[in-house]
């Protein structure tokens, strides 16, 4: 029963949402779907509390037991609770100067910094991966070089317009063809997976192993 009930609830709500997506002109469906949407919003918003509890448990224990690197855990909790209390009790609005300051000078730059580290990873991965091991790898290498030069002004300056045109062609023809092929397969796979989960055949996500 521990696994049956979630499957039954999932099936009922899943089918309801699918029907409400496709069928029009039934006010009860629209109203019902609005209710379900609201519940999803409420659950999503509250789920953050689960995460806070987990972080507190893990890092609190680490601090309590003075494990290696416990200072970082302490810092994490100070930041997490500090930001939350400041937002809820002091700032109360995103327009608050202090909140804006923290956002502009802490969150935004840190976020951008991590994202920008990708440039190093891309450089290192390209150096490691693009080796002429066989014909396929050679094709990949040539396409990568054409794309890298064709999508920046330096390519046109050094080699002329043809490099940009070739890059556009790679993007529009072979790339789009490959993307579509993978996407069609993935979409069909996604629908089949959703259906298997909906009817309870695949229930590994419930901690079981299926039928």
């Amino acid at each position: 029963m521990k696994q049956e009930l979630p499957v039954i609830i999932g099936l009922a709500f899943g089918l309801f949402i699918v029907i409400a997506m496709f069928v029009g002109g039934v006010p009860a469906l629209t109203t019902g779907k609005n209710y379900v949407d609201d519940w999803f919003l409420v659950v999503s918003a509250w789920a953050i509390a689960v995460g806070v509890v987990n972080l507190t448990q893990i890092h609190g224990r680490r601090v309590q037991q003075r494990r290696e690197g416990y200072q970082y855990s302490l810092w994490l909790m100070i930041c997490m609770f500090g930001m939350a209390f400041f937002g809820i009790l002091v700032a109360k609005s995103a327009d608050h100067e202090g909140w804006k300051f923290m956002y502009n000078n802490l969150i935004a730059p840190m976020n951008a910094t991590v994202y920008s580290t990708l440039v190093f990873y891309i450089g290192a991965a390209a150096y490691r991966a693009f080796r002429v091991r066989n014909v396929e790898a050679a094709v990949l290498l040539v396409a990568a070089v054409v794309m890298m030069l064709g999508r920046v002004p330096l390519g046109t300056v050094l080699l002329g317009d043809w490099i940009g045109d070739t890059a556009e062609w790679i993007l529009n023809v072979p790339n789009s063809a490959g993307m579509r092929g993978i996407q069609i397969g993935a979409t069909l796979g996604g629908i089949a997976t959703a259906l298997r989960i909906l009817v309870g055949i695949e229930r590994a996500h419930l901690g079981g192993t299926g039928d």
């Binding site: 440039v119 891309i122 450089g123 390209a126 150096y127 490691r128 693009f130 080796r131 002429v132 290498l141 990568a144 070089v145 890298m148 030069l149 999508r151 920046v152 002004p153 330096l154 390519g155």
Partner: peptide
């Protein structure tokens, strides 16, 4: 910056190969 970083990556790819 993007132009010259791409050029540098290409140089490394050539060296690696």
């Amino acid at each position: 910056a993007q132009s010259f970083s791409h050029a540098l990556i290409i140089v490394f790819i050539i060296l690696g190969n």
